[in-house]
Design a protein around this nucleic acid. Structure first.
Lengths: 348, 348
DNA sequence: GGCGAGATTGTAACCGATTACAACCAACTG
DNA sequence: CAGTTGGTTGTAATCGGTTACAATCTCGCC
């Protein structure tokens, strides 16, 4: 079952069948109709390998993420794939596992499969790897680290605005001793979130207490350990802002383990709004970063780049505004002198 | 940069280059070495589209799942992809979204991309769709619903054994009023788990109380709602076994909301052991179903089928034994007449 | 009726590999 | 030394499309 069979049945050449399939306008409506009927009757569908070879376009996009088991990514992958399929594209997902060697493998996979574009939703991409895509004239879109001036589209998250919302929410509840549990410092997005928080605190006129600025690893255990360290301080914070939801979940776990209540004793704010956050006890107040929006912009960037006829790849920049979702993990701080200290030791 | 360039540089024909790349034994070691040096020097890598077209093998496997945002799947996808890449294969992941129409699209995508095999890790696959793979001589492996006699490999989960372990654990703690929150009844694996539980209870000589057999939806909210219904009963259960971890998490949420303690007042057991379960408060006692093991067997089934020279596709069956992981969500039931009833009404 | 423009269709080269088959070569045999 | 054999290499067809270019057809118009 190939294009020749269709051509024979429709009494046309393979060229006409090809043109019909690809929506070329150079086919007379009557002929096109005949071809379509032949396709229908034979149940024909084109061999994508042959198409890719002949046309030089694979209709495959690469999607590079760090780790699909990180709950930030599944929804992103799903949205991206959904858009791709609706537009006749396939997606190859590759996990870097946060490792440069694996990242290199990911890039190689993309090149071998001749992807028509690649969305890099992680920050492990070294410039020598970027060059390899550049050399292949492959459109790229990055998350936060793109550079339209260099031909790389960018989906820019306005962390500052999101963090500001969180700080505003917390301070308006009356908190002043605000701790932060950041992500691993070798992660670009973690550094950005941290910077945004420091800036926001300063803008609010709140001094930055270094001992309240903890470092986690963007996983539950890191949040838990960091919270433990914060609880060991002389003067504990009354509110904690975490760099992502998993960290916040870990922090809440540490608090529960010591029989501290959230939000009565300590308020906790997350970042990302992963699915489970809405269903925790207490439901997590967090800054939602819409993965669907990110996926949508990333896809659009690649899709548009692919439509150009000639010339350099058009690079665009999109900006995503996170959104504070207030749930039940935040409340005013406990009254001075009571609260935490009082409850200490009353546990089981 | 194509195979001809390599051939020229190594002073051989393209056929010899191809043979060298594909590890044919018909190449003299000295020649092969020369070819390899040429490949190295030019930084050549083959065009997979051309390879697929010429050889009829795409080196792509299809992986059909129901929904990547269901926390059961990411680890499975990751493990499968990892094995595939290590063996020179690429993976196309497709989500059915539990919908027959979308499933049809998934199948079509697989056929168009000429996958060398397809792992179907969901149960929405109708027999007319299976036939399409059969017609294309495409090896298949299913999760639980395969049929080696029909040429479809199967990864069979021994739910009965896993459920038995859970029931044994709970009864040995002294529980007799045991509730079950199952999955949606239109889901094959949910029905299987339910059947296994009923059988296990009977084997233990415990009567099956229909009002304790609840139905959830394998998501958090379903578990929560089902638990609410169980708590409204005259005689509440002292232990709950859930059909998956999300359901268990929902159940625990419902309990916490009423100020019931887990495990002091009610014990909860999950199923699957998704990553987050170990980090909850309390950490969830659950039956681990290793996604890595499932992915491994599924890959092996396809990989072996692909190695056959001639003849029918060899179908195999693998059996996976789940494993009880005891954490902190289970304990002996509260003393009779006290416990739950005592605590009722003391909430906030 | 003849001519040119524009629309439609066909011919065939091409994409970059794989692989059946033929050709060649060296070593071994009788 | 001719004939065989087995190992190595090359030639060229093939996979199934796409697409540049050529060919043809259809009108409108003078």
């Amino acid at each position: 079952m190939n294009i020749q069979a269709v051509a024979d049945r429709a009494r046309v050449s393979t060229a006409t069948v090809s043109r019909t399939i690809n929506g070329s306008n150079k086919v007379a409506p009557k002929t096109a109709e005949r071809v379509r009927r032949a396709i229908e009757a034979l149940g024909y569908y084109p061999n994508t390998n042959a198409r890719a070879l002949g046309s030089g376009r694979s209709r495959i996009y690469g999607l590079i993420i760090s780790d699909i088991t990180n709950p930030f990514f599944p929804e992103l992958v799903k949205s991206f794939e959904d858009m791709a399929v609706r537009n006749g594209y396939e997606v190859i997902v590759a996990n870097t596992g946060y490792s440069p060697e694996r990242t290199e493998v990911c890039v190689q996979r993309m090149l071998e499969r001749k992807v028509d574009g690649v969305a890099v939703m992680t920050s492990e991409m070294g410039s020598h790897l970027i060059d390899r895509f550049h050399r292949g004239q492959i459109p790229m879109v990055f998350l936060d680290t793109g550079d339209p001036a260099n031909g790389i589209s960018n989906v820019l998250v306005d962390y500052a605005a999101g963090v500001d919302d969180a700080v505003e929410h917390i301070t308006s509840l009356g908190h002043t001793r605000i701790a932060f549990i950041g992500g691993p410092m070798d992660l670009a997005s973690a550094r950005t979130r941290r910077q945004a928080l420091l800036a926001s605190l300063k803008r609010k006129g709140l001094g930055v207490n270094k001992s309240l600025m903890e470092v986690g690893n963007h996983r539950i255990d890191g949040g838990r350990a960091a919270m433990d360290r914060l609880l060991a301080l002389e003067e504990r914070p009354t509110a904690v802002i975490a760099s992502n939801d998993l960290t916040a979940i870990g922090a809440i776990g540490a608090l529960h383990r010591r029989n501290l209540r959230v939000p009565e004793d300590i308020s906790v704010v997350g970042f990302d709004d992963i699915e489970i956050s809405a269903f925790l006890h207490p439901a997590l107040t967090t800054v939602r970063l819409s993965r669907a929006a990110i996926a949508d912009r990333a896809f659009q960037a690649l899709f548009r780049a692919g439509k150009r006829e000639e010339g350099p790849i058009p690079a665009v920049e999109y900006r995503i505004r996170p959104e504070l979702i207030v749930r039940n993990s935040t409340a005013p701080p406990p009254a001075k002198g009571k609260g935490i200290t009082l409850l200490k030791g009353t546990g089981e």
